[in-house]
């Protein structure tokens, strides 16, 4: 009974204090706020410790949640993004390859349109079956009109000549093979010679006259004297001229114009000159080039 009375008195006291506070806040707002601020300062300091503790726990939980639990989906998302990147990389590569192929075909088409020869486009489908010959296999054969001794070129220059054919494929002996020989002429001095392959994977211009003034850097083109190639197709550039005492001729090493290790498409020359007009035009072009300084 005493407890209940005491409680009742305390409640009344609390209500009265709260009413006084409200009245004070209404009647004396600035003074009451200063008072509250003064009282709240130490209280705030007391509260700061548990606040910091709870805050650190909260941050810890948040970190754990964001760093581990919530990252389950991020991990999955990351994997998906990686897959997307791989897919896009693949598509990008395919597109680049397509662009390269289109550029290559454009070059081939331009060459075919400008070339005075009748040519047949062919793809390189393999390399020589042995290690002893520098040759390549083309996907065109006798059924396409390919015959032995036909020349093979790219827009950059001479590749080689056809040495074997069957109905669906043919074998080309490259210009760098020692068994190959093509009639060539030095573009600047007009000295003629025979271009043969060497054991080192290059070519050599043989039988250059002793009095010739050929020098490194001179370009060598086909002379047109042999049936396989028309006149003026690039073979390569001289990189070293050799003249031995007592020899009747000079010889010079040639760096081939065409990178023979990276060939995909080539042209087989089925007829060196399509017609006489084209041949004449080509000759005029060549002579015109010679007159230029």
């Amino acid at each position: 009974m005493a407890i209940s009375r005491s409680t009742y008195g305390t409640r009344r006291l609390a209500i009265v204090l709260f009413a006084c506070l409200l009245i004070a806040l209404f009647l004396l707002p600035s003074q009451s706020q200063r008072l509250l601020q003064y009282v709240g300062g130490p209280l705030g300091q007391v509260l700061s410790l548990p606040l910091a503790a709870f805050s650190s726990v909260d941050h810890g939980i948040a970190d754990i949640w964001n760093g581990y639990v919530a990252l389950q989906s991020v991990h999955e998302e990351n994997r998906q993004l990686h897959r997307d990147i791989e897919l896009l990389k693949g598509q990008n590569n395919q597109l680049r390859e397509s662009v390269t192929a289109v550029q290559r075909y454009e070059t081939l088409l331009n060459f075919k349109q400008q070339s005075p020869s009748q040519t047949l486009a062919a793809q390189v489908i393999g390399r020589d079956a042995t290690n002893w010959y520098r040759g390549m296999i083309l996907n065109k054969g006798e059924s396409d009109g390919v015959k032995t001794e036909m020349g093979v070129v790219t827009p950059a220059g001479v590749v080689g000549r056809v040495v074997k054919t069957n109905s669906t494929s043919s074998v080309v002996l490259l210009v760098t093979d020692p068994n190959n020989a093509i009639a060539g002429v030095v573009q600047r001095t007009r000295d003629e010679g025979i271009v043969e392959g060497t054991s080192h994977g290059r070519a050599r211009l043989k039988y250059i006259p002793l009095l010739s003034r050929v020098q490194a850097g001179d370009r060598v083109v086909t002379s047109g004297l042999t049936g396989a190639f028309p006149r003026g197709l690039a073979i390569g550039s001289l990189i070293q001229v050799e003249k031995s005492e007592g020899d009747l001729f000079q010889s010079a090493e040639i760096e081939p114009e065409v990178d023979l290790s990276k060939l995909d498409e080539v042209f087989i020359i089925t007829a060196p000159y399509e017609d006489a007009d084209a041949a004449q035009k080509l000759l005029q072009t060549i002579h015109g080039d010679r007159k230029k300084p």
Binding site: D128, A129, T130, W132, Y133, R134, G135, K164, V171
Partner: peptide
Amino acid sequence: CFQDMLSAGDLWIN
């Protein structure tokens, strides 16, 4: 025989 068909060498070697 097959190798000779796809090689630039003489037909008998392989």
